[in-house]
Amino acid sequence: MRLTLTLRNSMGALGEAQARLAEWLETAAVPSRQGHRIELVFEELAANIVMHGYPDVPEDSREFRAEIELAPPGARLALEDDGVAFDPREVEGKRLDEVEGEPQIGGLGLLLVRRFASTIAYRRTPAGRNHLEVAIRLEDAPAAS
């Protein structure tokens, strides 16, 4: 099963996309703890694009795309945007018991992405687009909650 979402660079569009994803996961009968991981990885990465990907353009003026696919025993999330070049693998996400003072902006979210991902692939396309693909681990998320 696959869900394709077209988002815009605004919080309103992000909220609509999250609602559609939640509805789709429910329709697909994905267990709640596994669904939470998929929603979390999507949330952290899509919110990053909305908040930091388009710093100099008006809200709601640009589009980017997300694709979520159930691929048992995991799931796959692909994101493609034409915002600022950003490779999330370069951000060192540290646990709170490993940092002194405030955690790095975005660090906690990317730590969560990393912990729930088995692989993260990133490339900047020749056309100037970020292409990110994350394989989400679900097998160690208990089916019942």
Binding site: H36, E43, A47, L108, G109, L111, L112
Partner: peptide, 9 residues
């Protein structure tokens, strides 16, 4: 039901 990194911050 859901908690992301911004809530943690």
């Amino acid at each position: 039901a859901f908690c992301g990194s911004l809530a943690i911050r």
